[in-house]
């Protein structure tokens, strides 16, 4: 049931070399730098996003994800969800408006998987980059690199998937789009959505908590994925796997790494969901095909290389 959580809002990533990372996300992914703050953090967005930023980069000694945030419909919803999350048994901490530049107050909590999530209601509305709201052109002409359309979702690795499922489904109002079930009936992967998208957030079972697998950005077509692959070669960027297609979600995809080893995905297409759809189930015995639909074999790196 819907609880007033709208959509993915932003992600804050730790990077080892800030300027090399900004170059990666701006020149290769095609994001736009929208601001910097006194802590040295850099704010970026993809062109079709209406709010001021969706990616925040922070220089640190170890790469990985600080937190992922979802936008909620209004401040009253933020109040209600704060109480609901506390009733679920999690500690909620409060970040004042302006702690992230041009973002309203946020609440933070740690999911059973170990990852920090945030909810917020307000962020400065800047509109889409490079197009008007009235009679908009199809796309801005000054896009760079892969021309990422939007920040789309994250895949995170951690344990306690069942409790994490309860938090996201019962408390936050996500629904289950796709899952992987092992021979004992345990859910070892869960793809959760707030929308018609096949995933807004996904989790895969992993012994260690709080690991980051990838942040994914949407492209429009398979041709765009091939062009992304060309750019990965042209820039000698670290390639993980692809271009290929996933079984799960059926999205067309390529994976690569930012200069600090945080994994990125760009993908196109994929299935749609409505809340009345039954979840799609993949058997763990067929995980190779579920993850890489063409090779039908898992590569070790997809399971073990995390930040």
């Amino acid at each position: 049931m819907r609880k007033g959580v709208l959509r993915p809002g932003h992600i804050q990533l730790r990077v080892l070399d800030l300027e090399a990372s900004v170059e990666h996300y701006v020149e290769l992914l095609g994001l736009h730098e929208t601001d910097r703050d006194e802590q040295g953090r850099v704010y970026l967005k993809a062109w079709s996003e209406v709010d001021k930023f969706s990616l925040v980069l922070r220089e640190a000694n170890e790469p990985g994800m600080d937190f992922m945030a979802f936008k909620v419909v209004d401040d009253a919803t933020l109040e209600t969800l704060t109480a609901d999350i506390e009733a679920f048994g999690l500690e909620v901490t409060h970040k004042a408006a302006g702690d992230l530049k041009d973002c309203g107050r946020r609440i933070q909590f740690t999911a059973p998987s170990g990852h920090v999530f945030e909810l917020y209601a307000e962020k400065t509305y800047t509109g889409k980059w490079g197009v008007e709201e009235t009679n908009p052109e199809a796309w801005p002409r000054a896009l760079r690199g892969m021309k990422a359309v939007r920040f789309d979702h994250c895949l995170l690795y951690g344990d306690e998937l069942a409790k994490t499922f309860d938090l996201f489904v019962d408390v936050l109002g996500f629904y289950l789009a796709e899952q992987v079930i092992d021979p004992d009936g345990n859910r070892i992967a869960q793809f959760l959505t707030l929308s018609m998208k096949a995933h807004d957030i996904a989790f895969i079972q992993h012994e260690e908590k709080a690991k980051f697998h990838h942040a994914s950005f949407f492209l429009e077509t398979w041709e765009d994925i091939l062009r992304a692959a060309d750019l990965i070669s042209m820039t000698d960027t670290s390639l993980d796997i692809g271009p290929t297609r996933h079984g799960i979600t059926h999205g067309k995809t390529i994976y690569f790494f930012d200069p600090s080893g945080n994994r990125n995905e760009v993908f196109a297409g994929g299935d749609y969901m409505y809340p009345d759809h039954n979840p799609i189930t993949w058997k763990a015995e067929d995980l190779g095909k579920a993850i890489f639909y063409h090779d039908r074999v898992l590569n070790e790196r997809f399971l073990t290389v995390l930040t």
Partner: peptide, 20 residues
Amino acid sequence: LAITGLTGVAKAKPKHTEVI
């Protein structure tokens, strides 16, 4: 830390993984 990557997922499908 990297080695603990051999997870429940990997164990569920050992023939598709090779141990580092």
